[in-house]
């Protein structure tokens, strides 16, 4: 039976939750079951190579998996994958750019950053959109990749070590922008990082990712 888009379809009665991951397994990993409520942020950490990035890819349906993910009771497999990925967005650790200029990667520049001043906060002059991608540093690409993912205004944001290439100054700015994005929209975050201090700052709940499931751990 495919789950219907109704409240009762959420397992364990977590109808209030925004994103529900139900017995998700892939390769030799899983099953993973957890949920993230609207406006919440959960942190994931774990040894490198344990499959944190793969877990995020499974949540956005980019790799084959068993189990199901629900967004407000709607199963991932019930809607087209591109539509799902616009609502549940993954920002990978390494960002890729395929056109020559920054602007070409932002089809929809209307509102989001210019009005919020996010470009400036992340240390870019307004003309950054006309820059050649080849002149961007790794950190600059990482910061712009976040903004690029926000263009679709995703309901859930999966962040894979988003600040690994940033210095403390821009890390703080980065966290602030995400908070500004999250609060009015009530969006949910899953934040993968090795940085325990960062988890403490941003995550309400933290889990340790292991091969066969998640383990609770306090973001302490």
């Amino acid at each position: 039976m495919k789950a219907q888009p109704s409240e009762s379809s959420c397992p364990e009665g977590k109808s209030a939750s925004c994103l529900v991951v139900d017995a998700l397994s892939f390769l030799e990993n899983g099953p993973y079951s957890f949920s993230v409520g609207a406006g919440e942020c959960i942190g994931l950490s774990g040894q490198s190579g344990v499959g944190k990035s793969q877990l995020l890819k499974a949540i956005v349906d980019l790799i084959p998996h068993a189990g199901e993910v629900y967004l407000d009771g709607i199963a991932c497999s019930d809607i087209p994958a591109p539509q799902w990925r616009k609502q549940v967005a993954l920002v990978p650790a390494e960002s890729y750019w395929w056109y020559d200029t920054v602007q070409q990667h932002f089809p929809d520049l209307r509102h989001l950053f210019l009005s919020c001043g996010w470009l400036e906060q992340l240390g870019f002059p307004p003309d950054v959109i006309f820059w050649q991608v080849s002149r961007l540093s790794t950190g600059e690409r990482q910061r712009l990749a976040l903004l690029r993912s926000l263009v679709n205004e995703p309901r859930v944001l999966l962040l894979d070590e988003p600040t690994s290439g940033l210095d403390p100054f821009y890390t703080a700015r980065f966290e602030k922008i995400l908070l500004e994005y999250q609060q009015p929209r009530g969006s949910a975050f899953i934040w993968v990082t090795h940085d325990r201090e960062q988890l403490q700052r941003v995550a309400g709940q933290a889990y340790l990712v292991e091969k066969n499931g998640l383990q609770d751990c306090e973001p302490c």
Binding site: P92, W97, W98
Partner: peptide, 14 residues
């Protein structure tokens, strides 16, 4: 260019 292609898929492209 799988990284690039997957990045585009991640942004919700078909």
């Amino acid at each position: 260019q799988r990284g690039m292609v997957e990045q585009r898929l991640l942004l919700g492209q078909t």
